[in-house]
Design a protein around this nucleic acid. Structure first.
Lengths: 110, 110
DNA sequence: TCTTATACATAAGAAAATTATGTATATATT
DNA sequence: AATATATACATAATTTTCTTATGTATAAGA
């Protein structure tokens, strides 16, 4: 994912946010979009992505829809209603995390 | 540590930064300082803290000095030269992480 | 023809945390 | 005096999340 361990725990937030913006996406598309948006800084590996998608689906945050394009399989994921609500929570948590960390590493500015 | 999983992976950064500011600190003091600086948002658990300190010591980033205060044991940790350099790296990684995540979740502002 | 890209998946192992314990002393409360 | 809370360390079992490696299959480009 990256040389930095800080990304641990943020994959779910990333997936939910992307799906919140793009309506429906398939796994490989997510990896490419992340690479593009972060200018190569962050590469989502398949070993992390697919289990994460399956977990989100099992938790009822995502719905899946299978399609065949160019004779190749695609699994399109989209947010459920619950998933949309959870996205809001995750984004609030991210904002809170950033605020908290800035308070810790820049205490003079906090 | 917190209800949010985002803190996973940031404990080392937090420890190093606190030691960079406070010269020497002992474990329990670190837990209290974090609680104070984050107004209770973040609570470092002992099961996470002590193994992390031992690991940083084993890696040569921290030196330890044992003291007895009020008949109770304290283990004061301080940054080694290597530890000070690594602190700079970790803080750069944190800044980079925040920048990257903002590019992902606020693409319009990126 | 061979490599790269697209597209899914899982399994073994590592890393970092949580949760649950354990020991011990000091201080505050009932 | 008894009990609870705070101070101060530690580790072990388990869980979560990721990396690395591997596997299958089709399409496109060199």
């Amino acid at each position: 994912m990256s040389n930095s361990k800080l990304y641990k725990g943020s994959l779910t937030t990333i997936i939910l946010k992307l799906l919140n913006e793009h309506d429906k996406m398939y796994g490989y598309e997510i990896t490419q979009k992340v690479k593009e948006l972060t200018k190569g800084e962050l590469k989502i590996t398949e070993g992390a992505l697919y289990p994460a998608l399956h977990k989100l689906e099992a938790e009822g945050l995502l719905d899946v829809e299978v399609a065949k394009v160019d004779n190749r399989l695609r699994k399109y994921y989209k947010l459920t209603e619950t998933g949309t609500k959870e996205t809001v929570n995750k984004l609030e948590e991210l904002a809170e995390y950033i605020k908290t960390m800035q308070a810790l590493v820049s205490p003079k500015l906090a």
